[in-house]
């Protein structure tokens, strides 16, 4: 980020600014190392849930479910950082703000739907069983 700030005032000197800008460019858009780190982490974080489920390693479905959800959340964060280059500074913080707002809505949508419909199902249960 400091490279960008340095390049800003020096915009008159085109060649100079260009070089500085390119240095920063590579940083903010990931490097080979960054992509590889993200890829290796993703492969590990994908392989473990599949092994856990296909091999029934933990022997407990509820526990396995919770663990693979945890892996999914971690992998989403890995993708956000290494592939989508998410950080608190890009676009002056507006991207992260939009993301937080969206995540809030997503959580409300998911938990709200499940919560409401679970209670609805519970209330419907006696009638459901009766008809059977």
């Amino acid at each position: 980020m400091s490279a960008a700030s340095n390049a800003g005032p020096a915009s008159g000197h085109d060649a100079h600014a260009h070089d500085a800008a390119h240095g920063d460019h590579g940083e903010s858009h990931g490097s080979f190392k960054g992509y590889m780190t993200g890829f290796v982490l993703s492969v590990i974080l994908t392989a473990i849930p599949f092994i856990l489920v296909m091999g029934d390693v933990l022997g407990n479905d509820r526990l396995t479910g919770l663990v693979i959800m945890g892996f999914a959340v971690v992998q989403i964060v890995v993708h956000m950082i290494y592939f989508l280059h998410m950080n608190t500074k890009s676009e002056g913080g507006w991207t992260i703000l939009a993301l937080i707002f969206t995540l809030t809505l997503v959580i409300i949508t998911l938990t709200g739907s499940l919560w409401v419909m679970y209670h609805l199902n519970t209330n419907m249960m006696p009638m459901h069983m009766h008809t059977r």
Partner: peptide, 22 residues
């Protein structure tokens, strides 16, 4: 584009596209 040193030659396209993704 050069002066800002970031990926968007035309202002806030990236932010706009990010909002679409959201």
């Amino acid at each position: 584009y050069d002066a800002k040193g970031e990926h968007h030659p035309e202002g806030s396209t990236m932010l706009g596209f990010w909002l679409y993704l959201m």
